[in-house]
Every structure is written in C-alpha cells, then in structure tokens.
Write a protein that binds this DNA or RNA. Structure first.
Lengths: 136, 136
DNA sequence: GCTAAAGCTTACCATTGTGGGAAGGTCAAC
DNA sequence: GTTGACCTTCCCACAATGGTAAGCTTTAGC
C-alpha cells in the first residue's frame, strides 16, 4: 500500500517548497494531487520522485517548459533517446551563450575596474566609459 | 539653444525603446521629461546622453538599482572613484558567480549528453540521472 | 484645407519562477 | 476543548521588457 504524505512533508522530502509544488500543479507539470476529505493534497512515492526530477532539472537550468518535455519523455517508454539528447544539447547551447555573454561583460568590466584608481578623487574611467557619447 | 526630440527620435538615437524610456522615467532613473503643449515628451542632449549611459550599463549587466547609483555618482562631481569601483567590483563578483553556476550546469549536462546515445532506443542516461531517487 | 498615416499618450496584460502574507479551515497533542 | 502547527485559496510583488488598445496630435500628400 502506498504511503501518502501531505504537502509539507513532500516539500521536506523533495526540497521543493510547498508554494512551488502548488505552482507546478497549477501550470500542469505536475498532475493534480489527490485530496483528503478536508481538501489537503496527498502525494505518493511516484509523485515525490517526479518532484525530485523537477528539482534536479531546475538545478541544471532547464525551464519549466523544457521540464514538461523531459517529463513527457520520462513517462513515455516509447521515447527515443535522440529527442531527449537534442533537448539537452539545445539547452546546453543556451547555457554556452549565456556564459559567453557573461564572459564578455566580465572582460569589459574588469578592464574598466582595473583602470579606475578607486581612491577619494572623482576621476573614474568606468563612468567616463558609460558616459561616452556615440555608439555602443 | 538645445535641440529637443520626441520619444521616437530619442529611441532611435539612443537605442533604447520608447517603452523603456517611459519605464525609466516611471521608476525614477530618468528625470521627468519636459512636455509639449500636447503632452509629448521632449528630450535634450543631456537626457539623450543619460539614456546612452543607461543602455551601456545595462549591456554590462548592471541592474536598474545599480544603474541608479551609477547615475548618482556620475552626476555628483564630488563622488569618490572608490565608491564607483566598489560597485563595479561587486557586480563583477555577481557575474563571476553566475558564470561559475553556469559552468557547473554545463559540465554536468555535457557529461550526461555524452553518455546518451541519442538514437531510436529509449535508453537515456539523462533521464535516468534526473529520475534518480535520493539526493541532489 | 482635408485626409490619411505616423507618432504620441495612458492604461492594462503577459512574461518567469519565486516568495510573502492574509483569512480561514483542519488536525493533533495535551 | 483549546492551542499550535499545518493546510487551503487568493492576492501582491519582484525585474525588465514587450504587446495591445483607445484616443489625441502632428505631418505629409494632394
């Protein structure tokens, strides 16, 4: 017989806040939980595992939309690993683009900061650069 | 005599959308623009330069709150470059933390993707990892 | 000088994922 | 039987941006 837990226990067991568990249900990534007579949500082992799945996917930066796809693949024994891999690689590319963007910011900012004396005078290449007329 | 432009021209000249220009005014990073009799906003050269400042700061990833501080420093001739530099370095650290986080995601995800054959069979280490019971 | 198009105004809605809080019902322990 | 912990729904907020709609103004063409 399945052991059922209320949302607070589910939160502790999975590391997903109760707030988020309800939200996941609302947006449809999590099937509607069963309820007690009083209306308390109840979660079984499979649902707890699914919450763990979601949390780990979030930790890898997947969006909720992507996670919905991942869950669909996971629950579909007829999936082709090709599709999962493609989703992962696509996400990986987004990550790489973000990293690149941040690296570029970092480089510019580091150079500006290096040029700034950081003392009690007002002279500051950082502000001068931001204030520059024209262009980018 | 100052050349004044309406919001559309200001947008083109600065690369900031009209929508955003109004928003910046609303949240107070941009002083209220003067108006024509008909109520059209008018921008002078100084305001255009300020919009450019904001755009470049956004491009470096500064939040609007940080930009508000940067603008205050910029307009304050009694500023100390120390304060500007500190703000920049603090932001730089955030960037570095984000990069690190993304690098970690990337590493995990890359390894999982590498292990996944990506063919027409359902076997997929990516899903297996996400579905793993216990832990992280 | 009229009309149509382009430009401006405000106001509201949506996004993403998360948290906070209020008002009220439920359950368990003492 | 009361109290405290837990649950419910509903609404608000964030940060920065885009979209849309209804309505006024300005400009360009004829």
């Amino acid at each position: 017989m399945e052991k059922l837990v209320t949302i607070g226990k589910a939160s502790i067991l999975t590391g997903v806040s109760a707030k988020m568990i309800r939200y996941y249900e609302e947006i449809g990534v999590l099937k509607e939980a069963s309820r007690t007579d009083a209306g308390y949500r109840l979660y079984n082992q499979a649902q707890l595992q699914q919450l763990g799945f979601i949390r780990r996917a979030r930790n890898l930066g997947f969006s909720m939309t992507e996670i919905q796809s991942l869950l669909k693949f996971w629950l579909d024994t007829d999936r082709e690993s090709r599709d999962v891999k493609q989703l992962a690689l696509s996400h990986l590319q987004e990550i790489n683009e973000k990293i690149l963007e941040l690296e570029q910011m970092k480089e510019v900012l580091q150079k500006l900061a290096d040029k700034c004396d950081g003392n009690d005078t007002p002279d500051c290449p950082i502000l001068e650069d931001l204030a520059q007329f024209s262009s980018n």
